[in-house]
């Protein structure tokens, strides 16, 4: 088990949804890179952001707090934040830390995009 260098990938898919693919370990650096990648696509008043966590195994407390701040920012902009492909451990963490209270969680990307009104390009 090793910590990988975080390199998140972000794209806007048809429907105006920003999809960000998170890396293996979301810590302070990776978390900030995720937030920056997401904010770079905040082109409108009501942003819709989907984090695909299929590659993510671990998120630490600082990573969670960065996501919570981002969530707050998005809610402040009347936007939506969602997650898909979340591991059971991270889903439990999101539940306890209150992320799941305000963000939507989907089993996979297709389901998420359909529910959020977008689709893969």
């Amino acid at each position: 088990m090793t910590a990988e260098k975080p390199t998140p990938r972000a794209e806007v898919v048809p429907g105006g949804i920003t999809v960000v693919e998170a890396t293996d370990y979301i810590n302070n650096e990776a978390g900030q890179l995720l937030a920056d990648a997401a904010k770079a696509h905040f082109g409108r008043e009501r942003p819709v952001l989907l984090f695909d966590l299929s590659a993510t195994r671990i998120i630490n407390s600082i990573g969670v707090s960065i996501l919570l701040e981002l969530l707050e920012d998005i809610l402040d902009r009347k936007g939506t934040m969602a997650f898909c492909n979340v591991s059971p451990t991270i889903a439990r963490t999101f539940d306890i830390m209150g992320v799941a209270q305000y963000a939507r969680i989907f089993p996979d990307r297709a389901t998420a995009l359909e529910a959020l009104g977008g689709h893969d390009g």
């Binding site: 088990m1 810590n27 302070n28 195994r57 671990i58 998120i59 630490n60 407390s61 600082i62 451990t89």
Partner: peptide, 16 residues
């Protein structure tokens, strides 16, 4: 060991 180190990394926010 995997369970333990994963929990510690997540909760304590350690790099190692």
């Amino acid at each position: 060991g995997t369970e333990l180190t994963t929990s510690l990394v997540m909760l304590m926010g350690v790099r190692r």
